[in-house]
Amino acid sequence: MGNPFTPCDFDGGLNLGNKSESNGWIFILRELYISFVSDLQGNDSFMHAFSPSRGTSGGILAVWNTDLISQKRVIISDWFVSVEAVWTRLGLDVMFIVIYAPQGVVCKRMLWANILEMVVSFPGVCILMGDFKEVRDASERLGSRFNSLTATYFNDFIEYADSVDVPLGGPRFTWSDRWGSKFSKLDRFLITEGLLHNFPHITGLVLETNLPDHHPIILIEQPVDYVRGSWSQSVVGLVDMNPWVIFKKKLQFLKSNMRVWNSTSRLQLSNKRKELHVKIDALDGSLMNDASSTLLREQRVTLLKELANLKHLSQIDLTQKVKI
């Protein structure tokens, strides 16, 4: 199947020119007050690019450390800010694209087309991040209608960009309305596969804010050693035994420890769900007497999000059982 996206002209564009070589991370802040930009003035360690507010959004602000990232070109558009740079510690060409997508289907398809053209023509790796205003499947939306057609457009865009949707730890959804009736996973990281060669343990994390609207998300690399504790256990009485026997015993230690951890985690999960149900029932009773209480409704939103996250973990656990 051919590429369904046709590139088109996008508004805006600014080339900030070349800068001296450095390396590192980029820090993305979205919907910040303009006063923050003023605070950056005169600070040689940071540069920024800003796309002004459009509609109800607060705009897009990208900030990077000039001691860590050597930027070559910055493009500013209505719906994204892109930074082409060199990650000098690795000698890696990288393009960061910070996205705040529009609501309309046509506008989003135009945005996907423009970004796709940028990604496929860039010689290095790409990191796309932000609010894509779209979900990939029905499981990423709760309490609102799932549009399979727009999800297909979005999935096609990800596929043609040859990118990976980075798994996010933490809460299942990244956005909710103030009443706790609608939840969606709108914010994410998309990376091209070349980045995985340099950062094989890269992952994302959704931060809990206990407030409605969007959750912050961060991208990290954190290698996890699942077996070090079990493997370091001494095998008493087997010092002079066949190495294969010792190896078998270590595997048995690992299996036993994983069973204990799994059983404990499931029990904690079950108890936490029961506790949340009790709290939600109590809040529902209070809201019947005081339906206008904003504080009670915000507390209910927080509890519902926690419960949705726990249900998601239970579904993952059940899926793994079926596979096994």
Rank of each mutant, 00 (worst) to 15 (best):
K311T: 05
K185M: 14
V81W: 04
R145L: 11
R228Y: 00
L254W: 00
A101P: 04
W112E: 03
P171W: 07
Q222H: 06
R73N: 15
L128Q: 11
G194H: 07
R300K: 11
V125H: 14
S139L: 00
Q268D: 09
G180E: 09
E84I: 00
T203L: 15
F46H: 05
S256Q: 10
E208I: 07
S51N: 01
W244L: 07
S230I: 01
G42S: 05
P171T: 01
D284C: 12
D11Y: 06
Q268A: 12
L14E: 04
Q41Y: 07
G204S: 07
S263T: 00
G194T: 08
S148P: 08
S314L: 08
K250C: 01
W261I: 01
L111P: 09
I60C: 04
S230M: 03
A49D: 00
R178Y: 13
S234Q: 00
L318F: 02
L32V: 04
R300D: 08
N309D: 12
V119F: 11
P167N: 00
F199P: 12
D93F: 01
V235I: 00
K249W: 02
G169P: 14
N271G: 15
F183V: 10
R54V: 03
Q41F: 11
E275C: 12
F5S: 05
P171A: 00
R188N: 15
C8D: 06
T264S: 13
D11T: 02
G59V: 00
S144F: 06
E193H: 08
E159V: 04
G170C: 00
T294L: 13
I76W: 09
K255L: 02
S270E: 11
R259K: 13
I246S: 14
Y160M: 11
M288L: 10
V98P: 08
C126W: 01
E275H: 07
E159C: 10
E298L: 12
F253G: 03
E208H: 04
